[in-house]
Every structure is written in C-alpha cells, then in structure tokens.
Design a protein around this nucleic acid. Sequence first.
DNA 1: ATACAACTTCAAGTCAACTTGAACTCAAGA
DNA 2: TCTTGAGTTCAAGTTGACTTGAAGTTGTAT
Lengths: 141, 141
Amino acid sequence: MDINTVAKTTGLAASTLRYYEEKGLIKSIGRNGLKRVFSEAVLKRLALISLGRSAGFSLDEINEMFTPEGPHINRTLLREKADELDLKIKELTSMRDGLRHTAACKAPDHFECPTFQRLLKIAGKNKFKKPPKLGKSAAKS
Amino acid sequence: MDINTVAKTTGLAASTLRYYEEKGLIKSIGRNGLKRVFSEAVLKRLALISLGRSAGFSLDEINEMFTPEGPHINRTLLREKADELDLKIKELTSMRDGLRHTAACKAPDHFECPTFQRLLKIAGKNKFKKPPKLGKSAAKS
DNA sequence: ATACAACTTCAAGTCAACTTGAACTCAAGA
DNA sequence: TCTTGAGTTCAAGTTGACTTGAAGTTGTAT
C-alpha cells in the first residue's frame, strides 16, 4: 500500500505517518522509487498506536510499551501502565458523574450542592499526574 | 491567602496560578500592594480544574463548562462532555485489559494472541477524537 | 531610612505532536 | 520524450499549557 492508502484507511494524515516512521513507531516495507510502501500489518500497528494515544499515552511511551527491547516485552511496565489506567478510569468516572449531576441539578449554586461537593472532594484527592500531550489528529467524529 | 500558599496547598506553580487568572479560570479577591490575595474558595475551583484537566479537558473547555455565561450553566454542553467521557472510559478500559493481558500472555507474538486481536479490533473501531493538549503539572506522585 | 525577600509584569522560551511550505524526484501516461 | 502529479526531504511554523528571565515594586524587618 502507498502512504495515501494508509492515510485514508486510518484517517491519519500522510505527514503524520511520515512523522511516526521517523520516530520509529511504524516501518515501511520498502520503496517504489521514492515512495514508501507499507504492508497491511501497519494498519494494526496504527490501530494500536491510536488506542494508546486516546488512552493518554505519549508516542514515546507507546514505543516503550510495544517495542520489545531485545527478546521480550517489558511486562512490569505494561502492568504499571494498566494501573495508571485504572486510576484514570476512576477519575474519569467521577468526573462524568459530576457532570451529569451538574447538568441535572437544580441547586442555585453548584458549590452548595452536596453531590457536587463530593465530586470536588474526589478531585481534591487526586494530586493529578502529568499526562502526555496530545496534538491534532484527523478525526471527523 | 497569598499566591504561594495557594501554590503550596494545591501543588501548582505560582506561575501557573497567574496564568490561570490571566485566562479567567480563577480570580484573586484583591491585592495587598502588588501581591494577589486569594480566598479559600479558589482551592475548590482549582480542584475542579485539576479534575477537568486530568479528565482530558482543555482549559478553554473547563472555562466553558463551569463559567456560566449569564444566568445559568450550559447543561447541554455538560451532558455532551459526560457522553464523551463515557466513550473515553470504555476505550481506557479495553486498553487496560489489553495491557494486563499482554503482560500475562505467553504467546510468542502478541499479534497472534486472540485477546490481543480483540483489543486491536476495538482500537480499530474508535476513529479517535482529538483531545486537548496537556502540559506539565506539579505532581510528585 | 534602607534593605530585602517576595511578589509583580511582560516578553520570550519550551515541549510534544504535528502541519506547512518550498524545492525536489520519480514512474507512468499522452 | 516530456509532462504531470503523487510522493519525497528538510526546515520552519503552530498550538496549548506552561515556565523562565529580566526588570520593576512593594510591605515588613532592621
């Protein structure tokens, strides 16, 4: 497949694919003249990268996670990442509940509402960790 | 409270607080000479901002969500954000499961493992949305 | 009255993840 | 053969969220 086919099927910009290759996240299988040629396998790889990105991991982290250095994947790192996700899922869940409640609540000032207060309490707890940065991505959703 | 007290209790840098004020996310209650004076209420506000940030919202979005323009909060927007979070929670959950599985799985190549395949399938589905960018934050965790 | 630490402003710098632009190179079709 | 257009490289620009640095301004302690 050429780069444009990959771009179209994944929704990523060609420039992004070149950038990913430069970073070592994906590989082209060869060239046709100047033009990169990709195997179908790159689609799975990109799906994985997309999932990782949307889960809040940086490109470097994704590289660490899924590019086994030497003979085997770093399982400890994987487990740590899973634990991080667990925490994040909890945070997101309370945020979601808080939002839904706030949307429904009729209290004149949300800061007076006990449910909102609970949300804030939870918020206060998670001295929040530094997440990676996310850039634009081709998503029409 | 002065800015440094707020900084210490929240874990945020003073420069961040000034930046937030400049963006209209928080307000100081007055000045003592040049120095900003904050009320205790700012702590709750900052907790809320932290939660929002860690949930993946941009500062602008947080401003929209919690700074009612005129008389009342935009409930529709809040509900939309809640729905976004729901989706994200699902993604994170499958990512987490995938990671845990990958860490445990003994398959020679993860791309051959059916559980991993399932993860990739889910990954393939979510043409992922553009999330906001996140910067550094003072977190010692 | 003077010093000084702690704050201030404002402009510029940083970082990740891309995007954009200009100049270039082919492979293929008319 | 010559043009064309899709693809290429490389450098520089963009964005959001901050941080840093230089230079100025206090309230308070000496």
